[in-house]
């Protein structure tokens, strides 16, 4: 094909024949098509496994249907949504998700940041501690949940044994409505802190050392170095962690499933677990789909807000 087009250009005298014109048109088309062909496999994958399920769950959320009988699907419009939003259990679920997300994200990131400040040093011992802090990240969440259930057992658990050793009364942990949420937050922070710390340390190490030396020569007190130099320089890292931690906190499921099953009295029921309950326990496909769409919307809005509000303050080199 290339030859067919190249020929008239080289000769440059005779007008191109019809055949040559047609070949030229085909080639122009091919050139235009080529990039799409290159991305086609990835696009197919993306449509099939990302866009289509999203569209389909939105579609499903407008029907009243049950997993027990997939043949009968009645169009109900926004009824699934209005029912959900009217239900006090669902309000509780939303509230729980919010409390859980805000607590784990804020406390988790704060703790990781402090740990990173402490561990960002050269001596070997810090490397060992860093590895220890990171280790929960590579353990499966189900194992983590089992481990903490054992630790938090009110009678035989290690935590209460420790509390008693120092003369404090035992704690109810997972057994009571107030403490169960705190326990889940604790586990989530414990599991995530290692990864966050690692990312923070990587961010801190990418700050050139001579900037700190310049600050030393400028008589910068440590807290001002922290707030005027370290934190602004870490803003991309902070932003990244904020987004992924928020999204993953909203999606918490494993620990709830293993440790509390949403209880006691719905006190630790959160969005993903609620969706699972509606779909898999009560076979209520419509409610589950509608709740999924709400989750999608919430995470989307939060991410958007992060980008809008935080994004402007983030400093990229």
């Amino acid at each position: 094909m290339r030859k067919a087009v190249a020929a008239p250009q080289i000769s440059g005298i005779s007008n191109p024949t019809k055949q040559q014109v047609r070949a030229g048109v085909t080639q122009a088309w091919m050139e235009r098509l080529r990039p799409y062909l290159y991305v086609a496999p990835a696009l197919t994958f993306f449509f099939l496994f990302f866009l289509f399920p999203i569209a389909y769950v939105i579609y499903l959320s407008f029907f009243d249907w049950t997993l027990l009988n997939l043949e009968e699907m009645d169009w109900v419009g926004f009824e699934n949504y209005s029912a959900l939003l009217a239900e006090s259990d669902f309000h509780q679920v939303l509230w729980n998700s919010l409390v859980y997300t805000v607590s784990t994200v804020v406390l988790g990131i704060l703790l990781s940041f402090l740990l990173a400040l402490w561990l960002n040093k050269k001596a070997k011992v810090y490397g060992v501690i860093q590895a220890a802090v990171f280790s929960p990240h590579i353990i499966s969440l189900v194992s983590v949940a089992m481990l903490w259930m054992w630790l938090m057992d009110p009678q035989y658990g290690l935590l209460n044994a420790l509390l008693e050793m120092v003369g404090l009364p035992g704690y109810t942990w997972l057994a009571e409505t107030k403490s169960a949420m705190i326990s889940l937050i604790l586990v989530s922070i414990w599991k995530g802190v290692g990864y966050n710390t690692l990312v923070f340390i990587a961010g801190m190490q990418s700050i050139p050392r001579d900037i700190y030396e310049a600050a030393d020569l400028d008589q910068s007190p440590w807290w001002r170095t922290l707030t005027r130099i370290t934190i602004p320089m870490l803003s991309p890292t902070l932003f990244f962690l904020l987004v992924i931690n928020t999204v993953s906190s909203f999606q918490v499921f494993d620990t709830i499933y293993v440790m509390t099953q949403g209880g006691p009295i719905n006190s630790t029921n959160m969005l993903v677990f609620y969706i699972y309950e509606q779909g898999m326990d009560f076979y209520n496909g419509g409610a589950a789909s509608a709740a999924s769409v709400i989750l999608l919307g919430l995470v989307g809005i939060l991410t958007f807000l992060h980008f809008r509000v935080m994004g402007k303050r983030v400093h990229y080199q």
Binding site: I211, E213, A214, L217, D218, R224, R228, S235, Q317
Partner: peptide, 26 residues
């Protein structure tokens, strides 16, 4: 003493004014 570094070592998140004023404020 004051030092001028090879890579300048300016504070990237501060503007020129703040870069110059930082030592004075401290």
């Amino acid at each position: 003493v004051a030092m001028v570094f090879q890579n300048y070592a300016l504070y990237p998140t501060m503007n020129v004014y703040d870069n110059i004023a930082y030592g004075l404020r401290n």
